[in-house]
Amino acid sequence: MEQPDECFDPLQFAVDLDLTKSTKINPDEKVYISKSLINQANGSSYIELSSTKVTCAIYGPRETSSSSDESYSKCLLETSIKFSPFARQKRVDPLLIQYDNDEDCEEAELCSRLEEALLPCILLHKYPKSQIDIIIDVIEDDGQHLLSAIILSATVALIDACIELYDTVVAKSLKVNNSLFTLGYMPNLAQVSCLFFDGEATPNELDLLTDEAVKQCQVLHKAICKVVINDLKSAVALNRKTI
């Protein structure tokens, strides 16, 4: 069956779209965290932050094929983030390989940000000559929580894969005047692992934002702890039964 040459996004022709979409802030965002849902992976997780949905799979630590000097002393981190075709309002055709689209650049940018956030917390020297692959699929993106959901899912999956960590990285994205503020925080060490902000603000405002983000990070940290502990409890209960 033949396919048409040219397709148009229906939103191009929309007549009743309100462009002045108010950025509503709903304080009671839904958070859903689950882990160990991908069988083949060593560790995996699924995170929902309001309507952003992300899955993460971790393979490794496994032997690396790279022979660089770096890999002799510590573990290499390889990340790959992909948007599903229906992640955004505009559909991305996965069969079409484009080299000049913005989507690829964005994926690469998110990858590097994720690595920046995770590097301080993993004990990389414990796994020499090996590599850890982090594969993330973005199922849906609401424009605010994407980066924090990616970092959170990677952390939960790392815990699930039993990779040694100094602490869990919990991230929170806040939206201020069309600019995003993302903070990666390690609650037990009380350290900031990463901070991204691409807007205009005075130092005072930034302080306030950081405080707010840290407060919300602690709430998320409790949620993660709850999931992990429940999971461990059920695993212990299951083991007792088999013994």
């Binding site: 396919q3 397709c7 083949q40 799979a57 490794g60 992909k82 075709p85 692959d133 699929d137």
Partner: peptide, 24 residues
């Protein structure tokens, strides 16, 4: 939205795409 092919002016198109999980 798209233009129909000249062979059948009234019929639309369907495309299905299956994406399996990316593995290691």
């Amino acid at each position: 939205l798209t233009k129909p092919s000249l062979k059948s002016l009234r019929s639309g198109f369907i495309q299905t795409v299956v994406l399996l999980p990316r593995t290691q």
